[in-house]
Design a protein around this nucleic acid. Structure first.
Lengths: 212, 212
DNA sequence: GCATTTTTATAAACACTGTTTAGTATTTTA
DNA sequence: TAAAATACTAAACAGTGTTTATAAAAATGC
């Protein structure tokens, strides 16, 4: 009588196959240039079959969104062992930027696209575990910095929001192509990666001076 | 023999009509939900006619992109009369955020969408007057702050990049719907506008402490 | 003024998109 | 083995950006 269980396993397996294929195609061609038909062709099923396993394209997006968040959180895990919280904060910034550059399409999915957030809102999900986990890692580090005397008289949450806004802004400008269009960067022959590192350094320097 | 001149005027007029209609529809429905056919219907011409005046949809986007930049630069103009450069910098941040919230679709066009930048690259345009103007307004203010003793030992350009990254990041997170999904913000009943202002304040405070 | 060339506009088509429906195989259950 | 449930798909629907062939209108040359 394990039929139902096996069917459920098969179902999840098929979902995984679809997601894996979609993920691969998204990385290759970018998000907007992959259609349901492309995914169907890749897994050698008809387009309609996809809709037996996912409500619509947004549900696929959202599933990948969760996976991408797990990837990002994994990038942060090794940094937990850095004892000095300020050094850790700095390395988190670097890791964040590195992730955004290396996984551009995934980063867009995580933080730039509106669809995943809209899907979340449509599902009436009030929680958002993956997102909270990533932000908490930042907020905790900020809190520990404050315990060590940095950023005194700042609200921990507000301060964390600020650092996230900065780092995201830098990544977003890079991925949208705006960074390379700034006059100074156009005319210099510095690589975009270098520009980003320098801008991050400027921010870290700024924070460093806040140690009372 | 002024026929050619009149025809050129008519041509520009038609381009304006198309742009005006497209702009209106974009504001109403958002960018992705307006098709060439919608624009054509609004101006009571066939879709193919649009292609006699614009190479493709991207050229329309780019034309609106330029107009949006002029709008943004106009928002900054009144701030030029603020004598204290630090106060001006602060007000520029506020004006920037206000613009992003009030003209969400235009902001997306300006700084989030990749298409306008891609179009710029495809045209082999090396210059970017509108963009430079906006950034220069920021860089000049930063430079004047430095003359007054703020942000000493920082590179003007790097520092300007940092402030832009922060402000853009904040706006981008808001417009993509991520801001309202942060745990603390979910659970508080503060308005998103208020959150943004508080985060900006935190940033301004941070900068203020950099006055040697 | 009339024929010829140039310009302007469009209907229809092309190759796509996400998604739904109706119908056919296959598998499970009774 | 017959009935019910499940898995799958071909075809269609309504839309997208864009191109092409064709018809109407306007400007030009004689």
């Amino acid at each position: 009588m394990g039929v139902k269980e096996r069917k459920e396993r098969d179902r999840q397996e098929m979902r995984e196959i679809i997601l894996k294929s979609a993920y691969k195609l998204f990385l290759e061609r970018g998000f907007d240039d992959v259609s349901i038909r492309n995914v169907a062709e890749a897994i050698e099923y008809s387009p309609a079959t996809i809709y037996l396993y996912f409500k619509d394209k947004n549900e696929i997006i959202h599933a990948l969104h969760r996976q991408a968040f797990e990837m990002l959180n994994k990038q942060f895990q090794p940094l937990a062992k850095i004892a000095d919280p300020f050094a850790r904060l700095s390395e988190m910034g670097k890791a964040y930027i590195k992730f955004a550059i290396k996984n551009a399409e995934m980063y867009k999915l995580l933080f730039i696209r509106s669809e995943p957030m809209e899907h979340l809102a449509n599902c009436q999900e009030t929680e958002w575990k993956e997102g909270d986990m990533a932000f908490d890692a930042l907020a905790q580090t900020v809190a520990q910095c404050q315990q060590k005397g940095y950023f005194k008289n700042f609200d921990t949450h507000q301060f964390s929001m600020m650092t996230w806004s900065f780092t995201h802004g830098l990544c977003a400008l890079r991925l949208s192509g705006h960074l390379g269009r700034v006059k100074e960067e156009r005319e210099s022959n510095r690589k975009l990666d270098q520009i980003m590192n320098e801008t991050l350094s400027t921010f870290i320097q700024t924070l460093q001076k806040l140690k009372k």
